[in-house]
Design a binder for these strands. Structure first.
Lengths: 199, 199
DNA sequence: GTCTATACTGGGATAGAC
DNA sequence: GTCTATCCCAGTATAGAC
């Protein structure tokens, strides 16, 4: 990477750190420049629209990255136990990806600054949760009939499981400022899924 | 109400409007004073600690108000259908209360400015969701055995229902900027609960 | 007790030197 | 491509008018 691209990337990294830690508005460009070791004016060379420009860039990266995450394989599932296991693996994958600093920060920053973002900028998160639900639906649709779930049950089952996945994301990440799912919470989630599938 | 108290209350109302619409940091005290029709210095007469002081007050009101909301009566429930009905009524109550402008704004403002708040200030929302779960648990504990749910099933059932209630709160209010639960979403929720109880 | 005018400080942004 | 000096405006604070 050339010097220029490097400086730009460096500014983004430092900004993501500070935005997530202190919030977007509370982070001054002076503090950002000082932390990055660059001068005040340089920021406007790489980001002509200033601080907001950096925010947009960070959120956009969250957007482009999400697509490739979590590939879970339902093809060999032949029992309810195996299905539950794959679903737990999917949930684990979601939290693993959020353990990555930049993913976590993109998530938090997007929710907290939703009103500052363009429509596209805030849509990625909605797409993220929808994608999660779609993946679960796809999995259940292929193995569901084999396991004795009727056509009408599968969508309902899917939406309930999706709620089970999404609800802790918000309560832990946003309300409790907790970045990982504690093992007993994962166990609880597993219990809920097994309870749900056992019918 | 005397002049003084009125002015103070007026400033809070206007601030809640602006904070919810544009965000806390993006709202300047000058804009706030102009919108309220008062002069710049007056704000510091009523709120010696300035803008943050107003934020704390707004959040604190969200805190004190929540306790009295939603009284749902499970005592006459004698069938799974009646139980589902009461749960849907509870969910409806939650959304009814959020339709109230000031409740909605307190909710949004609290989540978005979580990192600016004192611990107590941010805890009320966590307490709110916990209270919701407790209420469901209390209801199921009284009528659950009568309807054939075992001691071990009730907590799991409760936590799943809580997730079903909480998940839409976040996706609609925070991600989609949607302030009410569309009727088809309420219907979906009802379907999920009935599916869940039918075992 | 209520309110206004005004000064101070610090942050976002820009112009222009190098 | 990078840095320095500077501008303007917002949040804060206070002295004093009524």
């Amino acid at each position: 990477m050339e010097k220029g691209a490097h400086q730009r990337a460096h500014l983004i990294d430092v900004a993501r750190d500070l935005f997530a830690a202190q919030g977007y508005e509370a982070t001054t460009t002076r503090a950002l420049n000082q932390a990055a070791g660059t001068s005040d004016g340089l920021l406007y060379y790489y980001f002509p629209h200033g601080k907001q420009d950096i925010l947009d860039t960070i959120v956009e990266e969250g957007l482009t990255r999400r697509a490739s995450e979590f590939t879970v394989d339902f093809s060999h599932v032949d029992s309810k136990t195996a299905l539950a296991e794959q679903l737990v693996r999917l949930i684990d994958g979601v939290w693993q990806s959020l353990a990555r600093e930049d993913n976590y920060q993109s998530f938090i920053i997007t929710v907290r600054n939703r009103m500052l973002l363009s429509q596209a900028g805030s849509d990625w998160l909605d797409g993220y949760t929808n994608g999660l639900e779609q993946r679960i639906l796809a999995g259940l649709a292929t193995v569901g009939p084999k396991l004795g779930y009727s056509e009408t049950q599968i969508p309902v089952l899917t939406s309930i499981i999706a709620a089970l996945v999404i609800s802790p994301l918000f309560t832990e990440l946003l309300l409790r400022n907790q970045r990982t799912l504690a093992t007993d919470q994962l166990t609880e989630l597993q219990g809920q899924i097994e309870f749900l599938l056992a019918r």
